[in-house]
Design a protein around this nucleic acid. Sequence first.
DNA 1: ACGTATCATTGACTTTTATCAATACATTTT
DNA 2: AAAATGTATTGATAAAAGTCAATGATACGT
Lengths: 194, 194
Amino acid sequence: MYDLFFKTLSQKIELTADEKELFASYLTPKKLRRKQYILQEGEVSRHTIFVEKGLLRSYAVDDKGTERIIQFAPEGWFISDLYSYITGEPSVFNIDALEDCELVLISKNATDELRARIPKYLEYSFLQMQNAYVATQRRLFDMVNLSTEEKYSKLAAKYPDLLQRVPQHMIASYLGLTPETLSRARRQMALRKR
Amino acid sequence: MYDLFFKTLSQKIELTADEKELFASYLTPKKLRRKQYILQEGEVSRHTIFVEKGLLRSYAVDDKGTERIIQFAPEGWFISDLYSYITGEPSVFNIDALEDCELVLISKNATDELRARIPKYLEYSFLQMQNAYVATQRRLFDMVNLSTEEKYSKLAAKYPDLLQRVPQHMIASYLGLTPETLSRARRQMALRKR
DNA sequence: ACGTATCATTGACTTTTATCAATACATTTT
DNA sequence: AAAATGTATTGATAAAAGTCAATGATACGT
């Protein structure tokens, strides 16, 4: 239990056995079935969610009822609506399971106490946030400046397994494209390779 | 000197007079004339830059030689190529001055020592990074999901003064549009308002 | 104050992407 | 097993954005 979670922490900070035990006492395990929500629009995001197993996604629904996927979170990833988490405002996003999941929840209180009792965890949080920021900046740049084909190729190169686990129209949504446009782009690329 | 810098820190953490003095000893002031570079493609980003006065921008140049603006940094903002800063890899961005600037530089060494000697500064760095991350996530979502007119309107509402200080074709670049497209979108909006 | 950049706009045309509709296939549900 | 749902592809057409070129207007450096 929490194996992947502590393995992930250990990539950036080292915890003693005692610290791990203390840490674990603040964590809540949760299983989630495919299609179930862990956060729904209008609720306040009160936890940081870590994915031990399975696959989550976050998305918003636009005026026309179209789902706009913001993020995928497979094993080893954190996900939440950070804005709602920080401000306490109701979330405008949904987070649900694309596969059966095993999750680790850390409440806001738990986070605060953990950062106070294990200062290394504040450092971890900083490093984690720094990584997330750099990654998002890069993705923003790519989304603004790359062509449809380049966006897809980059995603496919970086997360090849994701394409096996997620239906193509969700990849299209994540990339800000219609399913038709992505389908045609893929066909073009395949034709050119022959 | 450093007035705005410390005022900005004080929005998130409180420093004593002694701490401020210690802090200031790690800072380097720098003036930059309009059009001068503070970071050029190929160099390693070795400082965090704070803008006391003036206006910076960061941008990349694509294969066709077109400038792609990533960020504007007016007074009170931080800017750097964080990826290059963290990894030590040469930067693929440029940062230059759109107006005469007064800057505050914090070297990587200074940052490390400051975080060790003033633990509150690690907390500040975390909060700052968290804010930057949330803001970038939101901008990413908008760039992917909003129409041209919506992108421009949102920017204009959020940073009205920026439109006065920055030529329109740079706003277009920041929004991932051609100058022509932005010009026509503005015309449409103006016509509709009458 | 001058000449030179730079800048914003507009028109004509091309390319890219979205939209709507139909089809075929696969996967889930009952 | 049959029905219902979800998924990917393709075609026809419309809408949006990019490209290229020209014209005034403005700002800037000396």
